[in-house]
């Protein structure tokens, strides 16, 4: 298969490549926004178990990624946070969801960027003298490495990469060029590049040549499969209803 051939697949065809157990999966999204909703539902329906999940934060309670923890499908999370959903909090506090260490969000995305760009890691000054406090993260295999460059003490942070990536974009062309809408662009493009097999869930699939080249947020070679998820209208409506339910929107206002 060429990097520019037609990558449109059925959900089963695209997702079926993920092993039933112990899959390492990286996901885009930010607290429930910009998530690959239908791919996440597929993981639940097919009971993909003991997932190691790399994600900026766990998601939004009662929604999307949160349902993975509720169904006990995630064994470890590599993230900046574990408490943005009630479901991940519950699994974590019961001892079912492992967190080896927490990363500052800026560090997490730089680790993903290092993975995406083929770097050996990044040097991050944030948290030095705090996160390397002895005993803070007691499950670390070895202490966090610190080096000094021009007087600045930095953690040596290895890259994050994953065999499988799930991203969400507005639309894709058949070759897998992706166009994002608004804040949906925040971490999906970097995640797409940091994974060996990236599945893009989109609201619309268009012929090659439709998306203006300067609007492409993720280029086709970084995407291995394109699946059609909900439509833009359906997606907006699902979020709107959720926001109404939790009081973040007021009806008829």
């Amino acid at each position: 298969m060429s990097k520019f051939s037609n990558k449109v697949k059925s959900m089963d065809e695209a997702m079926g490549i993920i092993p039933k157990n112990d899959a390492i999966i990286m996901m885009g999204g930010f607290v429930g926004a910009g998530e690959a909703t239908c791919c996440i539902e597929w993981l639940i329906k097919n009971q993909i178990k003991d997932i190691v999940l790399m994600t900026n934060e766990p998601g939004l309670s009662g929604f999307g990624r949160a349902m993975l923890y509720k169904n006990g499908l995630v064994k470890e999370i590599i993230s900046s946070h574990v408490g943005t959903t009630a479901e991940s909090t519950e699994e974590y506090l019961k001892g079912n969801l492992k967190v080896e260490q927490f990363y500052p969000m800026g560090t997490w995305i730089e680790k993903v960027r290092a993975g995406a760009m083929g770097l050996g890691g990044v040097l991050v000054p944030v948290g030095v003298g705090i996160l390397d406090e002895p005993g803070l993260f007691s499950n670390l295999k070895e202490p966090k490495q610190v080096i000094e460059v021009d007087g600045m003490k930095c953690f040596v942070e290895p890259p994050l990469k994953a065999p499988f990536g799930l991203v969400k974009a507005w639309r894709a062309d058949e070759a897998g060029n992706l166009e994002y809408r608004y804040t949906g662009i925040n971490c999906n493009p970097m995640v797409a590049m940091a994974c060996d097999y990236t599945i893009a869930e989109v609201e619309e699939i268009v012929p090659v040549g439709t998306i203006p080249p300067e609007r492409i947020g993720t280029a086709a070679p970084f995407v291995q499969a394109v699946v059609k998820g909900l439509s833009l209208e359906e997606h907006d409506e699902i979020y709107r209803q959720h926001w109404l339910k939790i009081g973040k929107l007021v009806a008829n206002q």
């Binding site: 930010f30 607290v31 429930g32 926004a33 910009g34 900026n56 939004l60 969000m105 995305i109 507005w170 994002y180 809408r181 608004y182 804040t183 949906g184 662009i185 925040n186 971490c187 493009p189 970097m190 997606h235 907006d236 699902i238 979020y239 709107r240 926001w243 109404l244 973040k248 929107l249 007021v250 009806a251 008829n252 206002q253």
Partner: peptide, 27 residues
């Protein structure tokens, strides 16, 4: 409510609007 969009959110994943001069960037 009718103008809220799934892809225009703040860091708490709440619906927000964009002010004139706003800019969107990667993480």
């Amino acid at each position: 409510a009718a103008e809220a969009k799934a892809d225009i959110t703040n860091a708490g994943s709440e619906p927000v609007s964009l002010t004139p001069g706003s800019a969107i960037m990667d993480l």
